[in-house]
Amino acid sequence: MRGGVARAVNGVSYTLNPGETLAVLGESGSGKSVTAEAIVGILDSPPGFIPKGEVRFRGDNLLALPEARRRQIRGQHVAMIFQDALSALNPVHTVGSQIGEMFRVHRGMSKADARKRAIELMDLVRIPAARARVDDYPHQFSGGMRQRIMIAMSIALDPDVLIADEPTTALDVTVQAQIMDLLAELQRERNMGLILITHDLGVVADVADKIAVMYAGRIVEEAPVHEIYANPAHPYTEGLLASIPRVDMKGQELYAIKGLPPNLMHIPSGCPFHPRCPYRRDDVCTTKVPPLYDVGPARGSACHFWEEVLDGSNR
């Protein structure tokens, strides 16, 4: 049974303002990376395709633009960094030429000028001895340093939006703290919008302004960061927050969301979370897809019984 369409993203909407950090939270297979790839226009297609929707960047629908125009926007206005810097960087070119490529291609700079700018950027992302290391290859750097090189590439042309797809997942906590600090600082200085894609509830709590929680290709909850941690309005968010090991829970069983994330080829009918949900009522949840209900100022929840969840008395 290999035929069929995996519905990775099913009606996702979000907006990002300048200088704002939006965290897109979800487990593997929830569609968070595919959404980002669609925004940047690097979705593998075929096999991937976007049946409908639009991505508006300052009013222009990116999905309708011709590829040549799209290329100009990508890198100059919308840039992206990836989880695994080693496979995202080209192993046979020096890091200096890869960072400099941005200036050569988009700005038409000479090789020598581009190299100078590459060194400046490496300094900016605090790579020690940048001048000496500009001609090194990616494999000669440590994981944290490679991620810095990717960040240098992505901010080279001063983009308005930076999409960071699990930028610190492959790194150790002490290095993760360095990279997140660097990203926050660059964002402040440049008033960049940042879309942070992650599954780490700790990182999100640290940096996000608002959060979109994804499940089975949909946004199931959207809210400002303080509200969502204090009082989630969707059973899935509630379950995720409850399953974090906490100090006062030591020796007790952890709360676990039962079951597994759905197969994207066979997303459950009605609410996709219903087979795992403690609030389920079979008559409603298995048949009606919940829209993103308006549940408060700048808050949405895709649960028929969001009032009950928000009330919190079942927790």
């Binding site: 700790g202 709590a205 941690y229 204090a230």
Partner: peptide, 10 residues
């Protein structure tokens, strides 16, 4: 360095 999963006091 461990991020605390609670935005209060960040």
């Amino acid at each position: 360095a461990v991020p605390v999963p609670n935005p209060v006091g960040r």
